[in-house]
């Protein structure tokens, strides 16, 4: 049962990698990367059960947080050209300024 779930997740990751390679815009690739991250979290949890080592769950929880932070950081970088230091005058208030 866990083997089947692992295989399904691997197939889904393969499809998402296909979109990441095809993706015409950078946002498609970021979307695919975010999806792969979420699937990897689930894969870690399932793999922990498959090998009877639930310690993988701790890694999965931390990876969830890193996944969303990584996505937000990439998007912010592509929108503003920087990661938005507060000294540079709050680029988040002026969405059109930093493009």
């Amino acid at each position: 049962m866990f083997t089947a779930a692992t295989l399904a997740l691997l197939v889904a990751i393969g499809l998402a990698i296909g979109r990441a390679c095809l993706g015409p815009t950078v946002f498609d690739r970021v979307l695919a990367a975010n999806t792969i991250g979420t699937l990897a979290v689930c894969l870690m949890a399932v793999y922990g059960f498959l090998t009877e080592r639930p310690e993988f769950l701790d890694v999965a929880i931390v990876y969830t947080l890193l996944n969303v932070l990584g996505t937000l950081a990439i998007l912010k970088f592509f929108r503003f050209g920087s990661l938005g230091d507060p000294e540079e005058g709050e680029p988040a208030d002026r969405p059109e300024a930093g493009r």
Partner: peptide
């Protein structure tokens, strides 16, 4: 408990990243 926490975490973070993605694409 850890799995439940993971589900709640995914429920909170996934809309945030999807919204950020859509908004960034729209502003781009």
């Amino acid at each position: 408990v850890k799995l439940g926490f993971l589900i709640v975490l995914l429920m909170f973070t996934s809309p945030v990243s999807t919204h950020a993605l859509g908004r960034a694409a729209l502003h781009h």
